[in-house]
Design a protein around this nucleic acid. Structure first.
Lengths: 141, 141
DNA sequence: TCTTAAATGCGAATTATTTGCAATTAGGAG
DNA sequence: CTCCTAATTGCAAATAATTCGCATTTAAGA
């Protein structure tokens, strides 16, 4: 439950934080602060944009959320409970979709041999054009 | 040569662009616009920051440069030599070493089937501990 | 050499995000 | 249950990175 998530992170359970978390929980895609803010407004939750930013940051620090930086430099956030740590982002409409496979796991042994490095972490961002935008761009022609 | 790079990209060869490109060429690490700007000033090249931004963007569009978005959302740029586009960075001493293999190339077909996305680009940052730092940390114990 | 589209400089605008501060509130102590 | 305090929020203003509009300059080809 959302209140437990907050308690676990040693954070006060405020209505703002609960609403923000549930918006993110319900979303299939990572959401930017502004997007969370708009979805809150759609539900008539009057929560200040600064609060949204602050909440997303603190929850990321507490590892409740995962921060994903898109190709255009903007950040988006998702619950950090899934194995989906990699995303592909459409460079036309900016939608992100998770990728099941992680190609780095299998690479670390190879890297160890090649470079002597012990791999401790990685960040992978793939950009592309989603099926919808591909279709639209073909229609235009 | 730098002038040929510009000619190849169908861009006018201006002194500003040449200086910017040579700064990036000489750097072992990807550079942010502001960093390029400062290095230019160190060489007493008076080039406007807007010009730096514009040049980096247009060269990225022409695939001369590769844009890398850092974890904090800021962009940095490096020459797109295509062979070693990926680096592993030691999180202790911050040294970067290129990685020969690119695991994304072989992944794009799989991604197309999984998500419908046409892959157009990617940015991969791997962090780890280099052999030297590993050795040092063992010596300490 | 002349012409002109492309490139540059400069300041102002934009966008995403952060911050300072006063007002409010959650949740534990009494 | 009430009170207290530190944490949280709202608001408005600040910052940082990047882009834009427009007048001026320049590369390069006719």
């Amino acid at each position: 439950m959302i209140e437990d998530i907050l308690k676990n992170a040693m954070l006060k359970s405020t209505k703002q934080r609960c609403f923000i978390l549930s918006i993110i929980d319900e979303s299939k895609e990572p959401l930017a602060a502004e997007e969370v803010f708009k979805l809150l407004q759609d539900e008539s939750r009057n929560i200040n944009l600064s609060t949204v930013y602050r909440t997303l940051n603190i929850l990321t620090e507490k590892n409740v959320l995962l921060k994903i930086v898109r190709g255009d430099g903007t950040a988006s956030f998702q619950l950090n409970n899934s194995s989906h740590n990699h995303y592909i982002t459409c460079c036309v409409c900016n939608r992100s979709v998770p990728i099941d496979s992680c190609p780095i796991q299998s690479l670390s042994e190879k890297i160890k041999n090649e470079t002597g490095f012990e791999v401790t972490g990685h960040s992978l961002q793939i950009s592309g054009i989603c099926a919808e935008c591909l279709k639209k761009s073909k229609e235009k022609k």
